[in-house]
C-alpha cells in the first residue's frame, strides 16, 4: 500500500523456487520494487533481482501492492486469500488451486475485493500460441474442428510435483497449459475423457492423454509426457479447421539451429521449463500484461475465470482418470 500513483509497483514474490526466477526479469522490466518471502532461497532471489527479504508473509503483505504467488500448488489458496485480505492484487502461478472449491473461493474473493487475480498461464504469452490465436481469430482456419496439443519435458525433480495429491500430477501441472489453449481456441468444454500410464519400471516417466469435446463441436487431444532424465522440453500443436490448418513444433521450427560440432561439449540436458533464449520472454510479456492491467484497470489476456475453468476441466480429467468414465463439465 506504499505505491504513489505512477510510482513503481511494490511487488512481493512469495515462494522463490524455479518459477519465481522466470517471473523476476519481467518485474524488473516493469520497474517494480521487489520484495520476497520464501521458506527457502529468498536471499539468493533477492541478490539476483534486488529484492527486500521478509521473514514472514505478514511483513511482506504490509509492504506491497501486488503479490506474485510462486509457491507449490497446495498453498496457493491460503496465500491468495491473505493477499486479497491485505488489499493486494495477486498474480498466481498455475494451476490456480488444487481443488475446485478453492478455485471458486479465490476467484469470488478477488471479485468481491475488486482486486486483480491473474492466473499465470504463460503459454498464452508464448509468441507461437499468440500468433495461432490471432490467426484463428482472423479466420485463417475457419471454424476450429480437430485440435492436437503436445507437451514434453523431463520429469520434475521436486518431489511435490509427482505427488498427485499435492500437484494434480502431469495433468494439472503440465497439461493444464494445453487445456487452457484448447479452451482459448475452441471455447467451453462439454465433456472430458482421460487416460494416463505410468512406467512400471520408472514411475516418474508417465504420459497422459486428455480428449476434450467442446460445446461448439470441436474436439481436442492433449498429450503430456514427463520423460526420462535428459528429455528436452518440446511443445507442438496442430489446429485444423474447415478452412485450413495451423501447425507448430518447437523441435523443428526454430530460428536458431546449432549443429552437433558447434554445440561441442555443451550440456544437452533435459529441462522442466522451455528454452526461451531465441524469443521475447513470454514470462516477461505475462508479467508486463499483469502489471499494465493493475495500473490501468484494463482486462489482461488471461482472467481469473479462465484460471478457474482450466482448473475445473483439469479436475474433470483427473476424475476421468480415476473412474475411467467421461466427465461432463
Amino acid at each position: 500500500m506504499t505505491t504513489p500513483p505512477g510510482g513503481p509497483l511494490a511487488v512481493g514474490i512469495v515462494g522463490t523456487g524455479g518459477i519465481a526466477g522466470a517471473h523476476g526479469p519481467g518485474w524488473v522490466e516493469a520497474g517494480a520494487s521487489l520484495h520476497a518471502h520464501s521458506l527457502d532461497g529468498a536471499e539468493a532471489f533477492a541478490e539476483t533481482f534486488g529484492a527486500t527479504v521478509h521473514p514472514d508473509l505478514d511483513s511482506l503483505l504490509a509492504a506491497v501492492d501486488v503479490v506474485d504467488v510462486c509457491t507449490p500448488t497446495p498453498v496457493h489458496a491460503e496465500i491468495v486469500h491473505r493477499a486479497l485480505d491485505a488489499g493486494c492484487h495477486v498474480i498466481c502461478e498455475k494451476p490456480l488451486t488444487r481443488s475446485l472449491e478453492d478455485a471458486r473461493a479465490v476467484v469470488e474473493h478477488a471479485e468481491r475485493a475488486g482486486r486483480l487475480l491473474f492466473p499465470a498461464h504463460v503459454v498464452r504469452y508464448f509468441p507461437q500460441y499468440a500468433a495461432a490465436k490471432a490467426g484463428i481469430d482472423a479466420g485463417r482456419i475457419g471454424t476450429p474442428a480437430v485440435l492436437r496439443y503436445e507437451r514434453t519435458g523431463q520429469f520434475p525433480r521436486m518431489p511435490w510435483f509427482a505427488d498427485q495429491e499435492a500437484s494434480g500430477g502431469i495433468v494439472m501441472d503440465q497439461m493444464i497449459h494445453d487445456i487452457d489453449q484448447a479452451i482459448w481456441v475452441a471455447g467451453p468444454v462439454a465433456s472430458v475423457h482421460a487416460r494416463e500410464h505410468v512406467a512400471a519400471s520408472q514411475p516418474e516417466v508417465r504420459t497422459a492423454h486428455v480428449v476434450l469435446t467442446h460445446t461448439g463441436g470441436a474436439i481436442s487431444h492433449c498429450r503430456g509426457f514427463w520423460g526420462p532424465a535428459g528429455t528436452a522440453f518440446r511443445y507442438a500443436f496442430s489446429l485444423a479447421g474447415d478452412a485450413g490448418r495451423l501447425e507448430y513444433d518447437s523441435a523443428q521450427d526454430s530460428a536458431v539451429t546449432w549443429d552437433a560440432v558447434a554445440r561441442g561439449g555443451a550440456e544437452t540436458g533435459g529441462s522442466l521449463l522451455p528454452d526461451i533464449s531465441g524469443m521475447r520472454s513470454p514470462y516477461a510479456e505475462e508479467i508486463l500484461d499483469a502489471a499494465a492491467a493493475i495500473r490501468t484497470g484494463r482486462a489482461p489476456r488471461v482472467s481469473a475465470r479462465d484460471g478457474l475453468v482450466a482448473v475445473e476441466v483439469s479436475l474433470a480429467a483427473l476424475e476421468s482418470l480415476a473412474t475411467g468414465r467421461s466427465i461432463p463439465c
Binding site: R148, E150, H197, V198, A199, A200, S201, Q202, V205, R206, T207, H209, H221, R223, F225, P228, S238, A240
Partner: peptide
C-alpha cells in the same frame, strides 16, 4: 525405447 508408456498416431 525402454518401457513404452504411450503413443500418438496420426493418419490425416
Amino acid at each position: 525405447l525402454g518401457e513404452i508408456v504411450g503413443l500418438t498416431g496420426t493418419n490425416n
